[in-house]
Amino acid sequence: MTHVETLPAALEVDVIGGLEQALKCLQERDAALLEAQANERSITARLGCHLQAVFPDWDVDCEFNCWRGPLQSRGHIVVSTTSATTEAPTIFPDLLIHRRGSGETLAVIEVLKSDAQSARHRERRKLQHCLKRLGCPHAAMIEIGVGKSRGRHHLEMLATPLHGEQGL
């Protein structure tokens, strides 16, 4: 069961509906990953596949390096990581629904597993920063239920920045 925290604006309904549909597919088709509490990157990649099916006219990318130049990464806290790290903090959004090469972005998404509560504040800050930088209309924080919480997802839509509040 998915829980949506905010009341959607009319323009968000299609995005929220698409996110809910992809989460339902994740629950149905990838239950073994959720039950096993697989790595967040594995779960996010599968969610991205389901989102691509829901948004066929858009590109859906995981950990997409969307910054247009090296100076745009300023202001981020970059934490060293290795391939063995199961919760690798990055400066890139977990999922991006966009049109590659056009600068057009529909949504930026951060994913958290239900067993990784300590990362919530950091991920929210990253999402808010990405939202401002990309100037996209939608941002979502999705907590995916894993292990005993499998099947319980929490979808939170963040407020978009006002027009003219682009970047830092």
Rank of each mutant, 00 (worst) to 15 (best):
W58K: 00
L26A: 07
P8D: 12
G164M: 07
L7F: 10
V79S: 06
G147A: 07
D57W: 00
E110G: 10
P56Y: 01
K148G: 06
T105G: 15
L51S: 00
V4G: 02
P89G: 05
D57E: 04
G145V: 04
N39Y: 07
V60G: 01
N65E: 02
R125F: 09
E12G: 06
P70M: 01
T2P: 10
R100T: 13
E87S: 12
E104Q: 15
R29T: 05
C25F: 03
R125G: 04
L168R: 10
R122D: 14
R99Q: 15
Q21M: 15
L33T: 03
A116Y: 14
P70K: 01
L106P: 15
E87R: 15
K132M: 13
C25M: 10
E87I: 04
T105N: 14
H163T: 08
L19N: 06
I43K: 00
T90F: 06
R150V: 10
A107W: 12
V4N: 05
E156G: 05
D59W: 01
C66E: 01
E35L: 12
R150G: 01
I97P: 10
T90E: 11
R120K: 12
L162E: 15
A139V: 02
A140I: 02
V111L: 13
A107G: 15
F64I: 00
P56G: 00
K24P: 00
C130K: 07
G103E: 12
L106G: 10
V111M: 12
G103T: 06
R122P: 11
A10W: 11
G167R: 09
E35H: 07
V54E: 05
V146S: 09
T44E: 03
E5N: 13
A88F: 07
L168D: 15
I109H: 09
A107T: 11
G17C: 08
E123G: 08
A140W: 03
R125Y: 07
I97E: 08
M157F: 04
L131Q: 13
S118M: 09
T6G: 08
I144E: 03
V13H: 09
W58T: 01
L168F: 15
A159H: 11
K132Q: 11
D94V: 11
H76E: 05
G18F: 07
H154G: 02
R150T: 12
H3A: 14
P161R: 02
I77R: 04
L155H: 03
A119S: 08
A140L: 06
Q128V: 06
I91C: 14
R46G: 00
H121D: 12
G75A: 04
H153A: 03
T86G: 08
K148D: 11
P89S: 11
